[in-house]
Amino acid sequence: MILLDGVSKVYGAGEGSIPAVENADLRIEPGAFAVITGPSGSGKTTLLNLIGGMTRPDKGSITVAGKDLLAMPDSALSRFRARTIGFAFQFQSMLPTLNALENVLLPLRFSRDDRTSEKALADAMALLVEVGLKGREKAFSSELSEGQKRRVCIARALVTGPRLLLCDEPTGDLDKATESVIMAMIKRANEEGATVLLTTHNPALKEYGTRLIGMEKGRLEIS
């Protein structure tokens, strides 16, 4: 599903440059649940963003679902992200001008999903119900709690039925109840066939992983 070959990413230039990912080689099989751990600044988020085609490496190659990300033009890469990848960020990422339901529907608009608008609406509503936000679909981010916003974002990450789910500290700063809801949904997506890459500081979340990957100063420590 994922193949990284000698991938490096450096921020800045010259003496002040910071190597975020150094010479990373990684292979993740389809359907895996990989948990990436490591201290802050170890390069976990950058690694996830490289795999998601959100940034380009300085060196190396990245292949996801058989596609060489570096060879794809921007429009194709954008479409690929919309259709293949679900993102759950470490911050609440609801778009403030859209309500909860519109946020969840947004990836379907970009992926040009062939489902009818009625079906899309029903699927989005079902996900919102699943994350416990029944009756809050018209609420904007300013009207929701932090935990509710994160649930909206998980519903949005799953709405296209992505083959790859990239979760960057998806439960950081959340209460136990919300953490359970979110992790249950991620686990179910994995059980339904999605490959999951999840970064975390939380040792308890390691249990979910079928693979554990450590990161230290931009280097991968694969177990």
Binding site: M54, D74, S75, R81, L95, F110
Partner: peptide, 15 residues
């Protein structure tokens, strides 16, 4: 950040 999020969700540069 919103522009970055839109792009992450699949919005093209043109959008």
């Amino acid at each position: 950040r919103e522009i970055g999020l839109l792009r992450a969700l699949g919005a093209t540069r043109w959008f």
